[in-house]
Nucleic acid binder design. Sequence first.
DNA 1: CGGCACGTTGAAGGGCTTCAAGCTCTGTGG
DNA 2: CCACAGAGCTTGAAGCCCTTCAACGTGCCG
Lengths: 235, 235
Amino acid sequence: MLTSTSIKGFLETSLLFSDLPAAALDQIAAQSRARRVESGEMIFCQGDPARSMCVIVAGQVRLVQHTPDGKDVTLATFGPGDLIGVLAALDDAPYPGSAEALEACELLVVPVALMESLMGQYAALTLRVLKVVSARLHEAHERIRELSTQRVQQRIARSLLRLAGKVGERAANGAVALDMRLSRQDLAQMNGTTLETVSRTLAAWERDGLIQAGRERITLLQPHTLMLIAEDMAG
Amino acid sequence: MLTSTSIKGFLETSLLFSDLPAAALDQIAAQSRARRVESGEMIFCQGDPARSMCVIVAGQVRLVQHTPDGKDVTLATFGPGDLIGVLAALDDAPYPGSAEALEACELLVVPVALMESLMGQYAALTLRVLKVVSARLHEAHERIRELSTQRVQQRIARSLLRLAGKVGERAANGAVALDMRLSRQDLAQMNGTTLETVSRTLAAWERDGLIQAGRERITLLQPHTLMLIAEDMAG
DNA sequence: CGGCACGTTGAAGGGCTTCAAGCTCTGTGG
DNA sequence: CCACAGAGCTTGAAGCCCTTCAACGTGCCG
């Protein structure tokens, strides 16, 4: 668990804050608090007023939007070093989505007011946050293109490959195991489809020896062939 | 046409730059150049190295991504005051999409190097750019949710309503004319569908008296009913 | 007035959703 | 330890939404 002094230690090594003057780090350490959330817990909920931003110290978090008719859409997943709740804070609007811990997480909760004051003072910090947000916008644009032009199969294949890049464990003979709990439902929400379609797709790939699919557990046996499917060169 | 001195005048009244010190404005005026593009012209192309960012002084611009198999996806459209080419500049990557002038445009072209140096110095400027980018990320998230969960009809309806907010001309009895050239193909690219489907949808709405659809020209006769369709409360 | 981009309409079919029923793991408490 | 509840998953059948292909109008501009 993070203590007030260990917060400062974390800040000093973090990509986002490390080069701020010591006085600023003290200020953050004093006004922020550590928070631990368990797997499945909500860090904040869509519609809540945004009073704080969170830096992820450890663990995986997913950002979800809920539609009026009860469907959920996963917008992105984040890991250590990422910043969540930025958008709401900057727009001075309620959180546009919910953040859910995918596993036990350590967070650093920074008040919006402090963050804004720091960003008004330290251009280097603001620039780094800007780069983070703009990288995310870039990813969002890719998702829009994929959702607009690709078939479900291709999108699922790409999701698996992306996850392999994030939490993949290389095994023998080129196989990559995804080191996370990942249900059919999760994949459906990431790709704008239904769990039935995901189930059928994975079943077909398993028959063809491309993957090995278990309960909330997937191993890519032939990543290369999946890449071909993602690019619509096979399938 | 913008001249070097009128550039400074523009900068002084722009939302983005107005509160920078005079020295910085001089620097921008000296190193930037004005550019005029005609309707349909490309401002930059996907894949080109990003050496500059553009501030739109006048006119409408749309951001498009091209897929390998020749389909185009419209990511967003921008108007006066907006900043384009930010992402590529910040990621130090090639432009992720093309920018096309929808009408004759006046642009202010700022070298990336200058912009980065300014953003490293003036936190207020960086913060304002950050807010712009984060607002766009917010919009992108909405698009992702819509593409993931809504039917084509709903998405087209919402597009029309959004455009009405941007370039709508209120007429008598609650009708709103869209003051722009807008082909079926354009609407298709904005919504991840085909021009045939757009044509059929608009034809149906015209039969029901919801809109009046001409060649590259649409008037919303019953915006309220379109809102119901966009929210899936009618059909 | 001819060419061309824009637009319409029909027909066929496929991809995906939806509904429904039943199966299989996993963890839990008796 | 074993049974059981419930979450996760599979599979089938029906059908709709939308795409795709194709052919034909229509309006605009040189």
